[in-house]
Design a protein around this nucleic acid. Sequence first.
DNA 1: AGTAAAATTGACCTGTTGGTAAATATTACA
DNA 2: TGTAATATTTACCAACAGGTCAATTTTACT
Lengths: 213, 213
Amino acid sequence: MTKPRAAETRKRTRIQKENEDRILEAALDIFSTFGFRGATIDQIANAAGMSKPNLLYYFRTKEAIHQVLIDTLLDNWLDPLRELNPDGDPLAELQSYIRRKLELARDYPRESRLFANEMLQGAPRIQEELRDLKALVDEKAAVIEQWIKDGKMARCNPHHLIFSIWATTQHYADFDVQVCAILAEEESIERRFSDAAKTLEQLFVHGLKISTK
Amino acid sequence: MTKPRAAETRKRTRIQKENEDRILEAALDIFSTFGFRGATIDQIANAAGMSKPNLLYYFRTKEAIHQVLIDTLLDNWLDPLRELNPDGDPLAELQSYIRRKLELARDYPRESRLFANEMLQGAPRIQEELRDLKALVDEKAAVIEQWIKDGKMARCNPHHLIFSIWATTQHYADFDVQVCAILAEEESIERRFSDAAKTLEQLFVHGLKISTK
DNA sequence: AGTAAAATTGACCTGTTGGTAAATATTACA
DNA sequence: TGTAATATTTACCAACAGGTCAATTTTACT
């Protein structure tokens, strides 16, 4: 015990807490932009307003920082799916799920990009988390399957439906540059968000066919 | 002219052509997985079965390789959108667009990931290409808008519709690890693809509402 | 076969990167 | 106020990265 690392001790100091938060905040910026290998500790330390050795006093390795980010990310990220209520109205439930995912993409784009980066690289650091994810998705897919069997919504493949919801919503975080480049620049983020929400609702509920109502 | 670099000379040798192809092939692997900053020349050279200096004999810098990949990528990538025919049947045109994009995701996942990596990092190296992209998208969005005005398809925001098509199809390339982890492992790529195609058609055309036909 | 151009390599250089060691400064708390 | 634990910094290291150079081998062509 010659070197009682801050992160290891039981009680966390005020300074410790503050600095760890600053580091994680900065690391989220850098990792989400450059990916794990593309990010450097120097960059993160700099963004956190801190010297590199000082940063390494709080997190022993680059991996350690990344791990914490990924872990906390996944928790929040899956909350909307967890809340899908089997007893609610199917279309309303799905619409609210879509909306909540879209809000996450709007409010936490860096988290989305961090996750996307990890996926692009083949998810080398989150194999076990993917297993938990599968369990949750399978569970909710069963819920959707039941809805379909009960004749409450159109037949479709529940897993792929979930993929489509993920894809369309996260797109606004992950491909934000592209979205902004293509939409007129004067479009505010609020406008983009509400247009996206309206379009997704239209698509997922009614599709593109002329409705005969 | 003391050093007539291979890539600069008019006539391309057999060896030159072969090696450039091998390098680009290897670079696509590495860049698409690790992103620009995460990829190293050593990795690429190694994957191409070639020494680093030899690789640098064909491409002067890491950027040069990346640039070629991005340029050729964008061309092929946008072909399906270019072919959207204003005089065709709207829903059939869009369905065939979706299918072609899905085929691209299946057959050229690395290209998709390369592009995704660039987007995640804020598209630092493809600003001007994004402008061309905007022009094309605006043009096709106008086509869709006309279809809507003609009462041939349901009202929606054409730009966001295109985003949704991109998102859902590319998802199968970019998030392949996740998709595979969540679907049962025994599912073949053909099965995944056909399930995805069917689901997307259902979604984009009919939506999830119970159809009354 | 001879030769000039093209291709390849090993050795090297410079800057960067993840991480360490030891010394110093600061804080919390009795 | 003293002091032990905590926090921070300076100086450093070894490995790696992008890229160059000069020398050597291979190829294409007469």
